[in-house]
Design a protein around this nucleic acid. Structure first.
Lengths: 182, 182
DNA sequence: ACCGTTGTGGACGGAACGGTCAATAACTGC
DNA sequence: GCAGTTATTGACCGTTCCGTCCACAACGGT
């Protein structure tokens, strides 16, 4: 709070008067950040079906590239907030969950668009794929913060893209939820 | 430090005398945790080539199940330490990186074993796949801490397994690093 | 111009925390 | 059994930090 007061030039009393307290101020910031992230994802992943697949690939790659470019490991407030605070603060958990589920829905919609256009196997489970894509992106973020090289991060992203079930002679993803093996 | 002193029954002076300071004590704990995780992964992913693929699937599923079972969002010290401290402490970054790269190597070895046995497409890039698997697991961990339902976590893990390039009529992963699209 | 409301600022109290230190206990080799 | 070394303790100091409070300025209606 002292740092924020110093950075904003406001007195600490004003901060408390305007926002009520530390946690409420944080939640305001966190909410704003979450909607910002969700909006950015939405604007990157919506559009005509013809480019849905390209948008998806670009999104995955951009995510990895963004992490790789963050050489200072500053990271993402959503990830950091969830990792650090979710354990003790259900409000943060709820907000992170809502945001990520919203993003998953956006990704799933884009995948469905790509399926309509014939780029992604229509037999694949769009929600499952969306969950996977989201996990990969959050995982790349986590790995990036752990100092993993940019090459490896981009390799993970590219491999994920390469494994997406394409149409036609592509492998059947029937039974993706429960493979027979094991 | 006060909490550790209380929990261990030791005086704070003893703690400082024995370990030197807060950061050094943390690094001792962090190192121990990291080697523990790496050992656990190694013991879960080594064995005869015939079961390499099964081990890999089990590992992925167990990772997701473990996160899903952690209803308190306590999480993993490696992930939390990297997320929280890596920004300001290069020692933590270095240790996280070493650990995760070690795990990636173990995963890659298991994938190569599965390739030798004919379960995974030998044309696939084992290191790229390992990076992807690692990203998925860390991503599932991150999503879990954000409160995402167990179903979705397991869906991501299962989808990842289902998309692994199998042998034979499975899709060719040639050019996995740089798909032609986009 | 006046007064009530609202916003602002920085000093202050109180608590938590990291780290030190001198006194004391435990243990070692001889 | 003793002297010297080492381990342990909890009180203690300085710092950081959160949140409050009161004095004061800005503003708006009349």
């Amino acid at each position: 709070m002292d740092a924020i007061a110093a950075a904003t030039g406001l007195g600490k009393g004003s901060l408390y008067g305007a926002f009520g307290g530390k946690k409420q101020l944080f939640l305001r910031i966190f909410d704003s950040y979450c909607t910002g992230v969700a909006d950015a994802v939405a604007s990157g992943l919506t559009g005509p079906d013809e480019q849905a697949y390209v948008r998806l690939c670009a999104h995955i790659r951009a995510g990895a590239a963004g992490v790789a470019a963050d050489s200072r490991h500053r990271g993402c407030l959503l990830a950091k907030g969830a990792a650090e605070l979710s354990e003790h603060d259900p409000d943060v958990t709820a907000r992170s969950r809502r945001t990520l589920e919203g993003i998953a829905a956006i990704v799933a919609d884009d995948i469905r668009a790509a399926q309509r256009h014939g780029d992604i196997d229509p037999a694949a489970d769009a929600d499952g794929l969306a969950a996977l894509v989201l996990a990969v992106l959050r995982g790349v973020e986590a790995l990036g913060k752990a100092g993993i090289d940019a090459d490896r991060l981009e390799s993970a992203a590219d491999t994920a893209i390469a494994l997406l079930p394409r149409t036609g002679k592509a492998r059947v993803t029937e039974g993706a939820r429960r493979p027979s093996v094991l």
